[in-house]
Design a protein around this nucleic acid. Structure first.
Lengths: 251, 251
DNA sequence: TGTACATCAGTGAACGCGCGTTCACTGATGTAC
DNA sequence: TGTACATCAGTGAACGCGCGTTCACTGATGTAC
């Protein structure tokens, strides 16, 4: 029979008090993911190799199969981690701005900067989630949960702007029925009130602007076009936010 | 001595009347690129293999080295072709819209649709140029010329809008000196006139919105969020264009 | 508390695979006189 | 026009490489009685 303690730990997921074997196991999993993330940072996702990771850990390659059933499983774990990382970065940036008394526009700018900062610090992890999908690999459903964290932050900011009146109503409301699914409304916490009926559709443009602009800079497409990437990024976010009615600070 | 004809052909680059050997050679180069593009469409850039391409052509792998000194050289050729393809698609769409009497806003929408249409038809070629950079490969300068074609189309549209007065002046002009390089001004045909001083910076946002939105859709990030990708794309382009002052048609 | 047993992390050899690139070669095609 | 020669496309074998995954195995660590 398993010890009462171990049963309790499992039931409550008290990861700190697991029995020794499980704790060691969890540590190795973390070590594998950390090493894999380092390799990712040098080779990119397509070149991520189980053997190379094992080598770096001082293990034989087959040993990794104790922890991940395949290369794709490891990749999935890294994707989830990356989504979580960018989500957490965004959440923290927003929380800090909010605590400092920032209005919704300023909050969103801070979130954008934070996401871009993370992208610059972890270019391959960024590419893993927001770049070209890895060929022959399709992300399982596990990743959706983590992927939605950033969307939630944006929804909170936009909702706050609608609530405190700082969101400018659209000059040209988008015609016809909404084009977003119920899933989006669920993340946003319900349909937006008048005169913001098209807000969810516009918000997706905002999110796309953040990721699209970050990618465009990250992948070097504006390399020869800009004298100051950081300053232009702020302005690009401000210009994009104008389309949604959110007013970002311009220095 | 080389024949006078062949000398003339070379000097004038009359590719149709080349001597037989050169013509055969050019045809094989085209065949190699076409086959490679097909492989690209199935495997993605990272998995593009010289051996597989040669196999498909009924050649032995070493034969390809008569035509391309390395795998990277083949990749470069494909990148240039892809940039040219998207540039041409954009140019044709704009020309057609212009010929049909469209205003600048309608022209830009047509260009956006055309680029996205090309991306959907050639997803891996799109990913090759606008997705994550291929690891270990850096695009040489040859590609810049081809890459700038799309920018030129956008510049023409925006300039036309500024000229005919359909471009709304910015509500909040971007402060301070411009952040774009002279290269951008050169593509755009000079600095924009008042009250459009910040137009180049805003135009880059427009371009980023097009590519960013296309990529975001292409890579499946809005898979669960939209009920109608095409319709939302049109609206997203309209919302993004609002930030620049360009008025796109809303159906 | 001590012993027999089960669990499981890690080993090391092997599988079959495809890759980019090189090299000396064979013929066919064009060129020069 | 005919012949000797140079060019060059394509061959086939070989190089050395790294990969994901499998399998039977060895020991150490925990568990049950």
């Amino acid at each position: 029979m398993r010890s009462a303690l171990s049963v309790v730990c499992h039931a409550l997921d008290m990861s700190v008090v697991k029995d020794a074997r499980a704790r060691a196991r969890a540590e190795v999993v973390v070590a594998i993911k950390a090493t894999a993330a380092q390799h990712l940072a040098q080779t990119g996702a397509a070149g991520l190799s189980l053997r190379a990771v094992a080598r770096d850990l001082g293990l034989v390659s087959s040993a990794l199969y104790r922890y991940f059933p395949s290369r794709d499983a490891l990749l999935t774990a890294l994707i989830v981690d990356a989504y979580d990382a960018v989500g957490e970065v965004a959440e923290r940036a927003d929380a800090a701005a909010l605590a400092a008394g920032a209005d919704p526009g300023a909050r969103w700018l801070e979130v954008c900067r934070a996401v871009r900062g993370w992208a610059r610090a972890s270019p391959h992890e960024y590419a893993l989630v927001y770049g070209t999908p890895v060929p022959g690999y399709s992300a399982p459903h596990d990743t959706v949960e983590a992927a939605v964290r950033l969307s939630r932050v944006m929804a909170a900011v936009v909702t706050a702007a609608a609530a405190d009146g700082s969101l400018r109503p659209p000059q040209r409301p988008l015609p016809g029925p909404t084009l977003v699914t119920d899933a989006v409304a669920a993340v946003a916490g319900g349909a937006p009130p008048p005169p913001y009926e098209d807000l969810l559709e516009r918000s997706l443009v905002l999110l796309t602007a953040l990721i699209g602009t970050t990618s465009y800079l990250q992948f070097g497409h504006l390399h020869l076009a800009l004298v100051d990437d950081d300053a232009w990024f702020d302005r690009a976010m401000a210009v994009a936010a104008e389309g949604v009615g959110l007013v970002l600070p311009l220095d």
